[in-house]
Design a protein around this nucleic acid. Sequence first.
DNA 1: CGACGAGTTGAACTGTTTCAAGTAGTGTGG
DNA 2: CCACACTACTTGAAACAGTTCAACTCGTCG
Lengths: 199, 199
Amino acid sequence: MENARSAQMFTVLEGLAIRFKTLDDGRRQIINFVMPGDFIGLQAAVADEMGHSVEAVTDMTLCVFERAELFSIFQNHPSRAYDITWLGATEEHFLGEALTSIGQRSAIERIAWGLLNIWMRAIQLDLLQDGELLFPFRQQDLADTLGLSLVHTNKTLAKLRERGLLSWSSNRLALHDVPALEKLAVVSIEDFKRHRPLM
Amino acid sequence: MENARSAQMFTVLEGLAIRFKTLDDGRRQIINFVMPGDFIGLQAAVADEMGHSVEAVTDMTLCVFERAELFSIFQNHPSRAYDITWLGATEEHFLGEALTSIGQRSAIERIAWGLLNIWMRAIQLDLLQDGELLFPFRQQDLADTLGLSLVHTNKTLAKLRERGLLSWSSNRLALHDVPALEKLAVVSIEDFKRHRPLM
DNA sequence: CGACGAGTTGAACTGTTTCAAGTAGTGTGG
DNA sequence: CCACACTACTTGAAACAGTTCAACTCGTCG
């Protein structure tokens, strides 16, 4: 929970979650989708509080670290410490991209960008089955990720479906034309290939 | 420059800069304003490339580190390494806040939030003179930070000025009613006080 | 069967963008 | 020292992308 003091940090081994922040009046911004390989709780460890909430969307398997251990990792395992920093910097890079999307891209571009992002990560993590991804999120979640209303997200998804670029129903997502989506999203294609854990 | 391989990292001692990303068609998103105490180039050091550009807005004084040194800092100065990670995590936290602003807040809320943010940082860094901040940015820069058009930014600033909440002209910024702006921006007041370097 | 959550669709509305024109300040060159 | 070019800021009006409201479908669960 946001503002909680958590005594643990976690590495995600399996499962999916969302990391989000809510405003006092209830508006919710999803910061990112948490996938295997992600490290949760560094901010809390380093800043004493969370600043956002994390919510599991599926069952998850986590590797738990005591927060108190963090500094001793820096003392005794410099290359692990370096990895942690690397993960943090990677995340920071991603957030810069996300900021650019929400700040500059139109609705259709954002959705293309957002789904591409998830898609490319899923590929790296070898999460596809028969060219499909098990994707247990709601349209509302995507809307809150991209700063769009639910209704508009729905209508924009419909357009992408009509164009044959993707399909998404009953928790199964498939992108059918990645190059077209890349063009639509105005991404330098390289942006997705770098900056992600190999774990 | 974005995508450049930089051999150095920098700590900002004096001066102001912007960190931004541009899309292929020219749209620009400012990721954040770079102020004294910030550490530039960690992403590049860790990921081999920048992913964004940095541009000085005033003359600057920097402390230069060779990128190659980074890993040896982790080996020989664990508490320095920890500090670097702390700075990264702090930045990551800020980007989450920014994402929430751009994704969820209206124009007037965003502007209140953005200027408050800068203001609180300036106070922490003791950059105010006679209750004013030397603020050498253009309205276009603020617009590109918050994902708004220049025109709308201008008109919204005018409203805040009319309400007597702030003044900003000829490079001098002053917030006259911080509590009112906090309320307007829908921030948990605490959000500004945590998570910033003490350096 | 009824209740509920998620998705879908149409229509009205509005916040924000875009277009366009004009002012003010600053530096440059003739 | 004036004319000019140039950049930042300002303002009004028209256009539009995206939001909000409302109603309906479909599948699931108890």
